[in-house]
Design a protein around this nucleic acid. Structure first.
Lengths: 137, 137
DNA sequence: CATGAACTTGACAATCATTCTCATCAATAA
DNA sequence: TTATTGATGAGAATGATTGTCAAGTTCATG
């Protein structure tokens, strides 16, 4: 049975107040900054649980860090993430899904899954940037 | 100036004799197994260099490990990787590229890049398996 | 062929994200 | 209330990758 705890509620709350992807460590810092006592391991565990339930999305940044975000839409979808500020937009790939299935079938593969992520520089950052740090630590 | 060394040739040779993705550590073990003396750090450095030159592909496995493979085709392309045996097929996504550019533009993003990886179970592995663990550790 | 500047190497330490351990705490059913 | 048992957290452990830096090599040049 899954129990309702102060810590899990805190992680869920933190995610609810965010619009872009954050790492487990960032969320941990965020909560501690708000005076909420929670262990790093608990944040990791909670995020992993939420991700496996499909309540949050998780993708991997190019340098291998896992980042999480609450899902705004349900079902399968992809992301367009700003390399500078980390802002993310949810998008869906109409043709991609079917294309993936077809190509896989042609190669004799079954149980196909796919990951697709787009990165770019958003309008705001393009105008204002000149080598500032990617995201607030 | 980039110098030609015994170690770099060894890494290139190892990659030339492989058809699927391998981690830096696996390649290191492979070379040592052949009696070739080479440091792990050197393998990492060499692979990173080859990858940035576009001579080899590198993708990240679901558990965050970086794996490399020599490119059979040049230019941008994607992969269909078997979750069980690791065999990989190179594929290209005709519509994906243009779709990515269009969607990004609609959202005001520029300098778009994308990653797309397909995973599945290949015909061989589907026949032989019956619920064994995803991949050998 | 001899030289030397500068690029490379490699053993090992250092990082860093993530997971594990396990004694202690707390949510729930009864 | 209370026993049961999942949840927590501090710190150790893991594992891939990168940094350090003295010693070794490469190769343009004399």
């Amino acid at each position: 049975m899954v129990r309702q705890t102060r810590q899990r509620a805190a992680v869920a709350d933190a995610l609810a107040g965010l619009d872009d992807f954050r790492s487990a460590q960032q969320i941990h810092d965020l909560l501690r900054g708000d005076g909420i006592e929670i262990g790093l391991a608990t944040v990791y565990r909670t995020l992993a649980m939420l991700a496996s339930e499909g309540v949050v999305d998780s993708i991997r940044t190019p340098d291998g860090e896992q980042v999480y975000r609450r899902c705004a839409v349900t079902g399968h979808h992809h992301h367009l993430v700003c390399r500078v500020c980390g802002r993310a937009v949810e998008i869906d790939g109409p043709g991609v899904e079917t294309w993936a299935g077809r190509v896989a079938a042609e190669q004799g593969f079954s149980d196909v899954e796919h990951t697709l992520e787009l990165t770019g520089v958003c309008a705001q950052c393009r105008g204002a940037d000149s080598g500032l740090s990617p995201a607030p630590k």
